[in-house]
Design a protein around this nucleic acid. Structure first.
Lengths: 226, 226
DNA sequence: ACCTGAACACCGTTCAAGT
DNA sequence: ACCTGAACACCGTTCAAGT
């Protein structure tokens, strides 16, 4: 009952931190207001003093996580700096597997998100890219600017009811997929993200592909009003 | 009561079609089993004869929508063929604004998704790209292969409680974002997807950036075991 | 004025009672 | 055996009754 017990006084960041811990531990679908309140040793309604509702809770969680993205040191070479910054974002957000779904479900920007976007944009502009090109390459980066892999392609194939098929039949029906899956198997790589795929390597491949393309456009003095 | 009334006999595709219509009309969050049953003039439990549960319903909706992607004609030039196929996917999925969220929430592939992936992969392989490179470029395409814009960057800025700020203060806090927003304003473009952004143009810019980069790698006989 | 338990309005889905 | 209404086990959130 006393304030000196194991019960600390509630605050918004304490609520958000507990929510993050819960989502980290048991997944986003396990996060609910009642359980979160129980975890904090308070009655559910007590949470609503610190968050307006569940949407606000999710906004706050993202705000904290995005705010932790490391402001990487700058070398003056924009391509390297952008690369480092995005890989830093990836390190931060990968620690919270739920962050991708929550980020993508947000409809409004938070200050920390805007700050990250502003910083990334500044790296391009300071590198000499025009505002026009920078605007376009920011769009081209898309959600990859947060360091997410686009894991949909790597999702597991089967478990469909109408799929009453031996797994041996899959290569017959989808021979091209089988071919590239075989190619990915060849090297003895750590299997992660997909069958035989190195998720980090795939991410960096895609990022470098984009960055190199941007560099080429910049060198060509690309403009949208062609 | 008679089967000749306005009540047609229920089937899986009729359930799925009604669910798609509902999500198209009022958004994904408005889709629920009870309301869907009401719409179809049946009792909620009747749906469970045709879909195992709500997850299965969502799987089926995606299956139908992805199955409608046009199998575009082939010219023999892989870059052009991939471009056309992806823009066809975009046309199909853009008709259903909920499809992005549902697709990305799926953890297992459905047959129609595998068929689309297999077809797209085949365009690269038939174009002469190695299985190794094709595997990597499929990852690099990521969810853009479905034609989604990565709209997170274009989300609306404000509506944060701690953001007690005149909107005039935003350019001061995020000058780089203001600079590229100004650049996007310049031409008299149809505003869509973001402030002053042409969503379709941005999508094609990013797609072409990727395709051109892939072409360069292919010309260089790129391999992952460098 | 503040806190909080019960209650409300929803869900997806189970289950048992009816036919 | 099949269908279906009621019920169950959850939600997020409101609200009114306590202090």
């Amino acid at each position: 009952m006393s304030t000196s017990g194991r019960r600390e006084t509630l605050s918004r960041v304490r609520v958000l931190a507990a929510a993050i811990a819960q989502a980290d531990a048991d997944g986003l679908e396990s996060l609910n207001m009642r359980g979160l309140a129980h975890e904090l040793g308070v009655v559910p309604m007590a949470l609503y003093k610190h968050v307006a509702n569940k949407e606000d809770l999710l906004d706050g969680m993202i705000e904290l996580v995005v705010g932790e993205i490391e402001a990487t040191a700058r070398t003056g070479r924009w391509k390297q700096d952008v690369r480092a910054r995005i890989l830093a974002a990836r390190r931060s957000l990968q620690r919270h597997p739920w962050s991708r779904a929550v980020l993508e479900s947000r409809s409004a920007m938070t200050p920390a998100m805007l700050a990250y976007l502003n910083g990334l944009t500044g790296l391009f502009l300071d590198g000499g890219l025009s505002a026009d090109l920078t605007h376009h390459v920011m769009h081209a980066l898309g959600n990859r600017m947060w360091g997410f892999s686009q894991e949909l392609f790597a999702a597991t194939p089967p478990t469909d009811p109408s799929f009453n098929t031996q797994k041996d039949e899959l290569p017959m029906r989808f021979p091209h997929l089988a071919a590239i899956a075989r190619a990915a198997m060849h090297p003895d790589r750590p299997s992660q993200g997909g069958p035989g795929c190195d998720d980090q390597a795939e991410f960096e491949f895609a990022l470098d592909l984009l960055l190199d393309g941007m560099e080429t456009l910049h060198a060509q003095n690309w403009t949208s009003i062609a």
